[in-house]
Computed example of a mutant assay.
Amino acid sequence: MTDLLRDGNAARATAEFRLEDYRRKYFPSAVSRVTGIFLFDDIDSAAQAWDSEEWSGHFNSDYLTDVGVSADQSSRHDSTWITMMRDDENILVDGWKEMAVGYWSGKAASDQPIWERIIEGWVTIWGVDLKARALKEVQQYWPQSLPLLAVAANSSLVGSCDGAIMPHAIRKGIHH
């Protein structure tokens, strides 16, 4: 989400919000790309994404880890459709709506799909190494956040959502 909202990504944000409008209108039961949590559905899909030129810059293998998922709702999609419906400048191409039908329907775009799972719910990071590196980063760059991190960690142990971190977008007004 932060990458999407950073300066220089206006075309990508526009494409995502147009795709979100399309989902709301035609596939309302599918989980939103804007508010959902993205996961690779299987290790083969993760490996394909890392090897693909279209995905370069989107993922850092330092953060690849096993997770536990508690999903209230999920949708499974071939993310290849997303790369097909945007050009090199992240602008939606002609015919993107037809491709969006394939994406939101959960159809494979090719014989080598890159399956992503979008969930509404919670993800628990199991990788201890990743947790330790994240703690060091918080200690180095945001030491004032350590008490909040302690609240979040302790809250999760008792099943509370206090201290949970999640993206949130608010639409203001009608824009065409």
Rank of each mutant, 00 (worst) to 15 (best):
2 T>E: 11
3 D>Y: 13
3 D>T: 12
5 L>S: 12
8 G>I: 02
9 N>E: 09
14 T>P: 00
16 E>N: 15
16 E>M: 12
17 F>G: 00
17 F>Y: 09
20 E>N: 02
20 E>M: 03
20 E>H: 03
25 K>R: 11
27 F>M: 06
29 S>K: 14
29 S>C: 07
29 S>Q: 14
31 V>W: 05
31 V>M: 02
34 V>C: 04
36 G>Q: 01
37 I>W: 05
39 L>F: 02
42 D>K: 14
44 D>S: 13
46 A>I: 04
48 Q>G: 14
52 S>N: 13
54 E>H: 14
58 H>C: 13
59 F>G: 08
59 F>P: 07
60 N>A: 08
62 D>L: 10
70 S>C: 08
70 S>Y: 15
72 D>A: 15
72 D>H: 15
73 Q>A: 11
74 S>I: 00
75 S>I: 01
75 S>A: 06
75 S>Q: 03
76 R>M: 11
79 S>T: 14
81 W>R: 00
83 T>M: 09
85 M>S: 01
87 D>T: 04
87 D>H: 01
90 N>I: 02
90 N>S: 09
91 I>W: 00
93 V>C: 03
94 D>W: 08
94 D>M: 06
94 D>H: 10
94 D>F: 08
95 G>D: 00
97 K>Q: 11
99 M>S: 03
99 M>A: 06
100 A>G: 01
102 G>P: 02
103 Y>S: 01
105 S>K: 10
109 A>R: 07
109 A>C: 09
112 Q>C: 13
113 P>H: 04
114 I>F: 00
116 E>Y: 11
116 E>G: 07
117 R>A: 05
117 R>K: 08
118 I>T: 05
121 G>E: 03
123 V>H: 02
124 T>M: 06
126 W>P: 03
129 D>M: 07
131 K>R: 13
132 A>K: 14
136 K>W: 13
137 E>Q: 14
139 Q>H: 14
139 Q>E: 10
142 W>N: 13
142 W>R: 10
144 Q>F: 14
144 Q>Y: 14
146 L>H: 07
147 P>H: 01
149 L>C: 08
153 A>N: 09
153 A>T: 15
155 S>L: 00
155 S>N: 05
161 C>L: 13
166 M>C: 12
168 H>W: 11
169 A>K: 08
171 R>E: 11
172 K>P: 03
173 G>Q: 02
175 H>Y: 10
